[in-house]
Design a binder for these strands. Structure first.
Lengths: 241, 241
DNA sequence: ACCTGAACACCGTTCAAGT
DNA sequence: ACCTGAACACCGTTCAAGT
């Protein structure tokens, strides 16, 4: 057999960042956040823990890279022809579903501020806010609000999934435990939470998530309306902040 | 010397959950999230790691308890006579400042879903939403949105502080690094993020945070206005969702 | 009832040594 | 250039044994 022509030919099963990331995703999906271990990973890749460090700088980098792979996949469809509001909703729901499928992505996102996976989301949101006509000076705080909300829900979802895994391996079971705890709180001190316990049992995370996005979008459009009115009416009276 | 009268008298320096929690807070404030260690804690309390387990069930319980102590302190002032909106703003800002002073509280909150510290915040928000006249069926999703946003910002702040500590011990230095990274992104793929890099350098977290709260409050009032209009006008046309 | 501290079963990371 | 795997410096948690 003549040797292969390609000069950078490698053994099919040799290590590479991509193979390591794929194995990490598989491990995280099957065993949760603390299932990702250099030793477990090495076993899965039929190598030693040290080998992985040739391709990857640290565990947190690896987690961020795995997270980024999921985010990039999720944001891959461009969503043409929709209104900016619809695009933001679609983008947000896409992220929600991705985190629902891979809860560890939620905590990875909140632990990688300003890193590539977060930037991908920021960019998409920002472009839609521009399309929506949000004035330049308000774009940063508006995109920050949307992003914080999305990351907040992500983190909560991840934490719920993590707790459910640790405690009883069932998620609705865990929510039920929390609801029971809430309904046993002191009625004088926690009237709202007690009544909310019932809602907690029947709520739909996805619907609640979208309701929050709509609330923020509503705030954006209200602010835009106020700005229009301000421009049309008398000078600077009643301006914001 | 006659022995003291109190029957449950203990050595002044004996262990108690409270002393352990205070020592934990001191440790977390001075050495960050992973400064809290049973060995370091034991040394500070002049005892062994095993002794702590007599009073505390696990590390995550301890972290939640420390977090709860800060949250309870922060929410202690009742804020009388203010409008519901102003109360929500004050409450949110209080939490923001507390997390700014104790960044580890941010990540502790996001890792304790449905637990006491989160419930305290939920309750206060919920009571103000009732005062605001948000209808019963909308209270849950509204309070969820506010809470997710607050927790999202908390988590981001905690992550920023954590990263800054790990990398260069200076926070604005870290934001500068991120801003530089953003400004070097591909202009075609990341136009928004590149232009946002400038804002990142000069922004004020606290102002941005409040702007997000105002956006959500705006969405709430807009929804209320739409509901009033719907009731006054023709039947169910233009109803939400 | 409360405390001690050694021991267990793990971690991430490094690094001399190999190919 | 890439891989091996033992070793280092940690962890949280348990538990027999003490007072």
């Amino acid at each position: 057999m003549a040797k292969k022509a390609r000069s950078t030919q490698r053994r099919e099963d040799s290590l590479s960042p991509d193979r390591i990331i794929e194995a990490s995703i598989a491990l995280l999906d099957s065993s949760g956040e603390n299932g990702l271990t250099f030793r477990a990973l090495a076993e899965r890749l039929a190598t030693g823990p040290g080998a992985i460090y040739w391709h990857v700088a640290s565990k947190s980098d690896l987690l961020t890279a795995a997270c980024d792979a999921i985010v990039a996949r999720t944001l891959s469809e461009p969503v043409v022809g929709a209104t900016p509001e619809a695009s933001i909703r679609a983008l947000a729901l896409g992220m929600f579903d991705a985190i629902d499928a891979h809860p560890w992505v939620g905590s990875a996102l909140t632990r990688a501020p300003g890193q590539l996976p977060v930037v991908r989301i920021l960019e998409r949101l920002g472009q839609q806010l521009r399309a929506l006509g949000v004035p330049d000076e308000e774009q940063w705080e508006t995109v920050s609000a949307l992003l914080s909300y999305i990351l907040g829900v992500s983190g909560q979802n991840a934490a719920n999934a993590h707790f459910a895994r640790e405690r009883d391996a069932d998620r609705s079971n865990f929510l039920d435990e929390v609801a029971t705890m809430w309904s046993q709180l002191d009625p004088d001190e926690y009237p709202f939470t007690r009544s909310a316990a019932a809602q907690l049992r029947v709520h739909d995370d996805r619907v609640d998530f979208l309701a929050g996005i709509d609330l923020i979008l509503g705030g954006i459009s209200q602010r835009a309306a106020a700005a229009r009115k301000g421009r049309a009416g008398v000078a600077g009276t009643k301006s914001r902040r």
